[in-house]
Design a protein around this nucleic acid. Sequence first.
DNA 1: GAAACTAAGTCAACATGGTTGACGTATCTT
DNA 2: AAGATACGTCAACCATGTTGACTTAGTTTC
Lengths: 182, 182
Amino acid sequence: MVDVSFSRSPTPQDDDPATADWEAWFDGQNHPAGRDLRQAIEMLFFAYRDFTSDPDQVLATVGYGRAHHRVLHFVGRNPDITVQDLLKILNITKQSLARVLGAMVRDGYVAQTPGARDRRLRHLSLTESGQALEAACSDPQQERVARAFHRAGPEAVEGYRRVLSELLDRESRDTILAQIRK
Amino acid sequence: MVDVSFSRSPTPQDDDPATADWEAWFDGQNHPAGRDLRQAIEMLFFAYRDFTSDPDQVLATVGYGRAHHRVLHFVGRNPDITVQDLLKILNITKQSLARVLGAMVRDGYVAQTPGARDRRLRHLSLTESGQALEAACSDPQQERVARAFHRAGPEAVEGYRRVLSELLDRESRDTILAQIRK
DNA sequence: GAAACTAAGTCAACATGGTTGACGTATCTT
DNA sequence: AAGATACGTCAACCATGTTGACTTAGTTTC
């Protein structure tokens, strides 16, 4: 029932250097791919779970959740971002955002300033306390990642980057990578 | 406000081969670590998001969500697992599980059989149609990962594994890794 | 200058998937 | 017989997503 044909018939744009070794490894499996892919999938699941638990704890102290954290993160990362652009990054609806963003503005973590050129736009940025909250959230997370990078070594970090960027949706990969590297 | 002191004062058990290069790279940053760590964090966020979108689509066709997928996955992976053990893996409450598991048993995707030795236990396993549904969900996801591995190359895959396993919570890492590698 | 479009906010209703707390029942252990 | 354990269930609640409809303000276009 499991279709593993993709492994045997790479599409043209799959061609890449450093493929031969992997093909050999791949073909050496008796359950071709299935087992190792499953492990890779589970690893991502568990790593992401633990990884998101850090900010959750901090945010709980101010009555916020993950949604608030994402706003905090991406507004901090993209000062003066507009609501539209934030929605595109978060990939949620305006109404969903309104709930969390409204609270954060009321609570004084996020500031809104109308655009100079186009006064319909609201440019979002973190206030002082917003920046402090963001730092409190991302500190343990960054520490976790720094520690993992340290222990895994630089080649492993490079591999992590490569694999994760290849996991992105093809249509949006370039946009996402540009956003990340900004 | 951001405390990056962890980067300067590695704890004793951080010692590891292949550390020097990374230290150099790390110290070479003017915003030490912050920028690259942030990129690594965002990459994980986006990759996970795209990665979970595959099964979501399949499950939507039978009126299921992500929670059902996780059950499907871990029951498929651990045949005859007990409810208790499944709860430990999923890290959710019995009541949360009951909602999705109940539906899946009713719909004939999961079978429950009382334990032979201890008849209080319910051993869970996928029925034929459960296995089919699981395959339908994991196929596109496995294809995505296989493709990413293929394009990133074997060394990158190894790095991906190392970094992700280091990202796990320290207390539970060994347990999780044992579960994954089972 | 009127019409049309756009950015943002808002109200309402609903789905999913988590939580806590309390309780029941069958079964095993001591 | 008493107590612990495995499982199930009811009820209430919360966070975060959805769709659809509508308003207001500002910009663009004809």
